[in-house]
């Protein structure tokens, strides 16, 4: 039943935003990636050399898979890691998927008191405001968070900003920056001990090709 085999390294990949960049980087690092990775609808794929197994997962599930050890490694955004707060080793910054987690609102709201914030990241949002000693009510939304201030649900949002285009088109702007986000390689505590060698080798390969900010 168990997907995680002792002599295979199982890697959980986040589908969506960072998937293609992750695969490009892996190929550049000469990691054996299945050719059909991009087109396939399979959730579990094995590398041609049989050394690696890839699980394609929703980003927010990646930290869970890795914490429980059903995947040895995970490739996931720091935003997801901050929100999930799981007990994992964070081994490497791949430098891809760069964006920022920001407090955003309409230009008129800038500098005014915040009562209610809508976010896909309730933990990041409440941690941030608590740290600053500001009492703010945080509402969890699943997507299209930009809607919240427009329909009067909240007076700010906390969300990731990549190019800022969605914000601009909805009449919003960045008010405060909370954290810079990049894609990370995380490892399970047991795997980090028992599969020490293949993990170190993969990390060294990726370290050679990761994007370092100029």
């Amino acid at each position: 039943m168990s997907c995680n085999l002792p002599d295979v390294l199982t890697i959980a990949l986040s589908k969506g935003r960072i998937m293609n960049d992750t695969l490009d980087l892996m190929r550049k690092a000469c990691v054996s990636v299945p050719a059909e990775m991009e087109d396939s609808r399979k959730f579990i794929l094995d590398s041609p050399d049989g050394q690696l197994r890839f699980i394609v997962a929703k980003p927010t599930d990646v930290p869970t898979f890795v914490e429980y050890g059903v995947a040895d490694l995970g490739i996931v955004g720091k935003d997801v890691l901050l929100e999930a707060d799981r007990d994992l080793y964070e081994l490497l910054d791949l430098g891809i998927g760069r964006c920022r987690v920001c407090v955003c609102g309409t230009p008129e709201q800038l500098g005014k008191e915040i009562h209610r914030v809508a976010s896909k990241y309730p933990k990041i949002a409440s941690d941030y405001f608590r740290r600053l000693g500001r009492q703010v009510e945080v509402i969890f939304l699943n997507g299209q968070v930009e809607l919240a201030p427009l329909i009067g649900l909240a007076d700010r949002i906390v969300d990731i900003v990549e190019t800022g285009r969605t914000l601009r088109e909805n009449g919003l702007e960045i008010h405060e920056e909370i954290a810079e986000i990049t894609t990370r390689v995380v490892a399970n505590r047991m795997s980090f001990r028992l599969k020490n060698q293949p993990i170190n080798q993969l990390i060294d390969q990726l370290r050679q090709v990761r994007l370092v900010r100029a």
């Binding site: 168990s2 995680n4 002792p6 890795v66 914490e67 429980y68 050890g69 059903v70 399970n188 505590r189 047991m190 795997s191 001990r193 028992l194």
Partner: peptide, 11 residues
Amino acid sequence: WEGYAPGIGFP
């Protein structure tokens, strides 16, 4: 020290 065994992700 911490001890691990294959098949479970926690010590």
